[in-house]
Simulated scan of single mutants.
Amino acid sequence: MTHAVHECAAAVDRIHDIVGTSGIPEEYAFSRQFRDVHIITQHGFINAAELEPIGQIMLGPEPHWPFFRV
């Protein structure tokens, strides 16, 4: 899920690179979509910092986040 969200944000970043400053004004839907996709990447269960406990689970060490403890 984390990877998917960050790939979606990367895709929106590519579009933003193409449209340039014309995607910034708030009256355009893209401006809202750009903000929304980047806001969700900071959610507690999705942000990139939470990839570390997934690696810990896969490699054996006890994850630091109680939510991920099995």
Rank of each mutant, 00 (worst) to 15 (best):
53 P>S: 04
54 I>K: 00
56 Q>F: 04
52 E>R: 07
5 V>W: 01
61 P>E: 05
4 A>T: 15
7 E>S: 15
68 F>Q: 04
19 V>M: 05
17 D>P: 02
65 W>P: 03
62 E>R: 11
41 T>H: 03
19 V>S: 02
2 T>E: 00
1 M>Q: 10
11 A>N: 15
47 N>C: 08
46 I>L: 04
19 V>P: 01
70 V>F: 05
17 D>H: 13
44 G>S: 07
59 L>T: 15
56 Q>N: 12
64 H>V: 12
61 P>K: 05
30 F>H: 04
38 H>K: 13
70 V>E: 04
35 R>M: 08
59 L>I: 11
39 I>R: 09
55 G>M: 08
2 T>A: 02
61 P>C: 06
45 F>W: 08
66 P>F: 03
35 R>F: 07
59 L>H: 13
11 A>R: 14
3 H>I: 14
48 A>V: 09
1 M>N: 14
48 A>C: 04
18 I>G: 06
64 H>L: 14
24 I>H: 15
46 I>H: 02
12 V>N: 00
6 H>S: 03
11 A>T: 15
25 P>R: 07
61 P>V: 11
34 F>D: 01
1 M>K: 10
54 I>S: 00
3 H>K: 10
49 A>L: 09
3 H>A: 15
35 R>P: 01
69 R>N: 07
42 Q>R: 11
17 D>W: 06
22 S>D: 14
59 L>N: 13
50 E>S: 05
4 A>P: 02
39 I>G: 00
17 D>I: 04
35 R>H: 13
19 V>H: 05
20 G>I: 11
61 P>Y: 03
47 N>P: 02
20 G>R: 09
17 D>K: 11
8 C>M: 14
42 Q>E: 12
56 Q>A: 15
30 F>A: 06
54 I>L: 13
46 I>C: 02
41 T>E: 06
69 R>G: 03
10 A>Q: 14
65 W>T: 14
26 E>Q: 13
48 A>S: 13
44 G>K: 05
21 T>V: 07
22 S>L: 14
37 V>T: 15
32 R>T: 13
23 G>D: 09
34 F>R: 04
70 V>R: 12
59 L>Q: 11
22 S>R: 12
40 I>Q: 03
67 F>C: 04
34 F>A: 03
8 C>G: 06
55 G>F: 12
52 E>M: 10
70 V>G: 06
9 A>G: 10
44 G>N: 07
39 I>N: 07
42 Q>N: 10
57 I>A: 01
54 I>G: 02
58 M>K: 06
17 D>N: 12
40 I>E: 01
4 A>M: 13
68 F>M: 11
29 A>K: 10
38 H>P: 04
6 H>V: 03
27 E>T: 11
28 Y>D: 09
70 V>N: 08
39 I>E: 10
54 I>C: 02
